Simulated assay, not measured.
Amino acid sequence: MLTDGYFRVQDVTLPFRLVYHRPLPAGGYLKAATLVGTQTAPPVYRRQGGTVVQRPARWQWRLCLTVELPPAPRIARPPRQAAAIDVGYRVLDQDRVQVALVLAEDGTVERLILPEPILRSFRYLRELQQRIDTETEQLKQVLRERPPAGLPEAAQRLLSVLTKVRDGGLRRLLALCLEAQLDGPAVERLTAWAARVSSLRREAAGLRQRMIRHRNWWYQNQAARLCRAFGTLVIEALDLRELAEQEPTTPVQQEAAKYRQLAGLSRFRAALQHAAPRAGTTLVQIPAAGTTARCAACGRAMLGPREEQVLRCEQGHVADQDVNACRNLLQQWQASAGAAASQTGPGPRRWTRLRGFLSLLRCKYLSTQVIWSAADLSPGGR
C-alpha cells in the first residue's frame, strides 16, 4: 500500500511517500519512528554537448518503526534435545565457507556452509573493487607524467601528495579543474575515470546490498530451522568486536580474514536470539574460555596451531576443533544444568527489540534524552 506523511527534523517538516509493507502488529504500541537514508550511488560526472555535468548522488530512504509488543504466549512443545553451536567462519576450501557447526546431543554433526550464490557475488564484488583500484592507479600514473597546466593552488597541493590521494581527492581535483575551466588530455582522462569509476561503484553498491540481503535471509531461515528442531541451543559468549580487531598473523589467517565481513557472524547470532522466543527454544550462553584448547575426551590441552582443522591432544585423542568446542559447550551446560549461564527464553520481547533498535542505530539522542516511565509501557500509556 502506498502512503505518505510528514517527518519533522527540528524546525523543518519533510513530506515523504513510501510503500507500507504491512500493518502494525495487533496490540502493539508505536514507540519511535526514524528516517534512515543510505547513499546507493555517488555523484556521476558525464560529458554532454561538450560540457561536463554532474548528476547528484542517489539515496534510498527507509522509515523504521519501533513497536512495543505484548508478551508472547509460551509455546507448549514436546521435549526436544539440546545442541551446541560453534559460531565462527572457516574457509574449508575454495568453494566452501563455514559459518557455524551444530552438534546435537545424539552426536549428529551439521556444518552451516554459505550458499554458493553468496560466494559468487562476494568474489565478483572483489573483482569490481580491483578494477576500481586499477583504474585509479592508472589515472595517477597519467597525472604524474602529464599533469594539467594552469592548475590552481589547491589542485597543485593535491598533485603534490598524489600517492596518498584516494577517490575523493581525485574527484576534488576534477571539480577544481572544471571550476578553472581547464581543458586537455589530463582533464579528459579525469572525466573519463570519474564516469567509469562511478559506474563500477554503482554496480558494486547494488551487488553488495543484494548479497547482504541474501545472507541475512539465509541466516534467518537457518536460525528458525534450528530453533524449531532443538529445545536448547548452547553457544559461546563471545565478544565478536574484540575478535574482529585481532590482526591476522599467518597466511591462513590473512586469507580467512578476507571473508570476515561476508560472514557477518553477529547477524547470525542476532537471528538466533530473535528466533528462539518464537520457537520456545532456550538460548544458553557459555563462557568461551578453553572450549577449543581443551580436549573434550580427557580435559588435556589440544596440540597444534589453531589454523589446523583437526587437532590432537596430549593423550592422543584426535578431533575436529569445532566439534571439540561443541562437545565442551554441551558438557559445561549439562554440568551446570544451564542455571549459571545467561540465557534468553520465551517471554516479553519488547525490551529486546528496543535495545536492539538503539544499539543498531547508535542513536545517542534516544539513549540519553528520551526516558520512558512505567506508565508509558502500560496499556493506558502513550
Score class of each variant (00 low, 15 high):
G316C: 10
R90Y: 13
I75G: 02
R350E: 05
G49N: 10
P305T: 06
R294P: 00
Q94H: 15
R58Q: 13
A374F: 07
T281Q: 06
G184W: 13
R225E: 03
P248I: 00
S199A: 15
P78M: 01
A297D: 09
I75A: 10
A374Y: 07
R362F: 07
D106F: 00
A293V: 02
E105H: 03
R201N: 06
Q254H: 15
R213F: 10
G356K: 07
A339E: 14
A340G: 11
G304H: 07
A195R: 12
V252G: 10
E245D: 12
A301Y: 08
P70T: 02
Q261I: 00
L65A: 14
R90D: 04
F7E: 03
A76P: 06
V9P: 06
S266F: 09
L103N: 02
G28M: 08
L283N: 01
R62I: 05
P346K: 05
L233S: 01
G5H: 12
R260W: 12
S199F: 14
P15S: 08
D320C: 13
K140D: 06
G150K: 13
L112D: 01
R189W: 15
R260Y: 14
G206Q: 09
Q332L: 12
L360M: 12
A288H: 07
A279Y: 03
A100V: 00
G264H: 12
A340C: 08
L103E: 01
C177H: 13
P78R: 03
T3Y: 14
K364P: 07
P251I: 00
C295F: 04
P71Q: 08
D322R: 04
P71Y: 08
R172P: 06
R228T: 00
G184Y: 13
P346R: 04
Y219M: 04
A76F: 09
A26L: 13
W217F: 07
L178T: 02
L65K: 13
L311S: 03
L200T: 02
E247N: 09
